[in-house]
């Protein structure tokens, strides 16, 4: 920042009227709960974990020495980092497109539901999202059980193959995708709101021009809600990279109902991070793992934003 620019800004602030300064103070006052919360619960812990990532901090003894980049070097040799990253990316690649596509389909169905039952349907779709993650994990231990689970009994009734969702390493991650798709109510609600905002006259104009349902979907609906689709794409990607509670409950908790078959197949990145922090007492290493995940999330999100410029339409731009 040049001194001229800084001086210019200072001059601009000093030119603010008393009313403007008062407004600013009020704004800051109203924002202060968030600012305080952000500093204490987000920025502070982030900076602390950054420092910890350069130490061998033991959370039990409360002691740790500075070890430079050792934790980051260790990640390169730790095969479980690669394994957990692979599991997490596999899940994300399956889950994110499916959640957005299925969410859009359900939102369109909801959009077509009118009358007094509309609210009930919306509530029903959103209900899984207010179910605690631990309850979801436990519930799906029962649903995905082979051969007695609800899903496989249904598949068997239809004479379809009944995979071992909880025990077969080839199916464990697919079972987790199914479980998480049960909770896409948030995605549905956001896309449903976007669909409600598409002007009806655009559809009428398209219809007059002879556009069929598919053409109206591709040329009217999708462009008009592309901002919302992009939003859920980013949010779901970030959330999928941070998947933890349900998987930990199913495969790694103390009273897990699943066998150890998920030891490698269900070892997601944040599960491994958590284990290092709280089971292996390696908080420094866990912090370094956390920062690697942060960098990965930032890079993927940056890439998504770059792509969005080509595919996302914002009204008013």
């Amino acid at each position: 920042m040049s001194s001229d620019t800084a001086a210019g800004r200072a001059d601009k602030v000093s030119r603010w009227s008393a009313a403007e300064r008062r407004t600013l103070l009020w704004a800051l006052l109203f924002l202060s709960p968030w600012i305080v919360g952000f500093v204490i619960f987000t920025a502070g812990p982030m900076l602390w974990s950054l420092w910890l990532s350069f130490t061998d901090y033991n959370p039990l003894s409360g002691q740790g020495d500075f070890i430079g980049l050792d934790n980051y070097a260790r990640m390169l040799e730790d095969r479980r980092v690669g394994l957990s990253l692979w599991n997490t990316l596999y899940f994300s690649v399956l889950y994110v497109p499916l959640s957005v596509t299925l969410g859009l389909g359900l939102a369109m169905l909801l959009n077509g539901v009118g009358g007094r039952f509309a609210g009930s349907f919306r509530t029903a779709f959103y209900l899984p999202n207010v179910t605690p993650a631990v309850a979801v994990g436990t519930l799906f231990l029962l649903i995905l059980n082979n051969p007695n689970g609800l899903l496989n009994q249904a598949l068997a009734a239809l004479r379809l193959p009944t995979p071992s969702w909880l025990n077969d390493p080839d199916w464990i991650k697919n079972g987790i995708v199914l479980m998480m798709l049960w909770s896409i109510g948030g995605t549905v609600v956001i896309l449903f709101a976007a669909l409600r905002n598409v002007p009806a006259e655009l559809y009428e104009a398209a219809r007059v021009d002879g556009a069929g349902p598919i053409q109206r979907l591709l040329n009217v609906t999708l462009p008009m809600i592309s901002g919302a689709i992009f939003f859920v794409l980013v949010i779901n990607t970030v959330a999928s990279l941070q998947l933890f509670s349900e998987v930990y409950t199913m495969f790694f908790g103390q009273r897990t109902g699943a066998s150890a078959a998920g030891e490698s197949s269900a070892l997601f990145y944040v599960v491994y991070l958590f284990r290092n922090a709280f089971e292996f007492l390696r908080m420094g290493y866990a912090s370094a793992l956390g920062w690697l995940l942060f960098v990965i999330v930032v890079l993927i999100t940056f890439f998504q934003f770059r792509l969005s410029k080509r595919f996302v339409y914002y009204e008013g731009e």
Partner: peptide, 11 residues
Amino acid sequence: MNRSIRWIAPL
């Protein structure tokens, strides 16, 4: 699905 690691500290 929006349960994330950022909830761990307050949790």
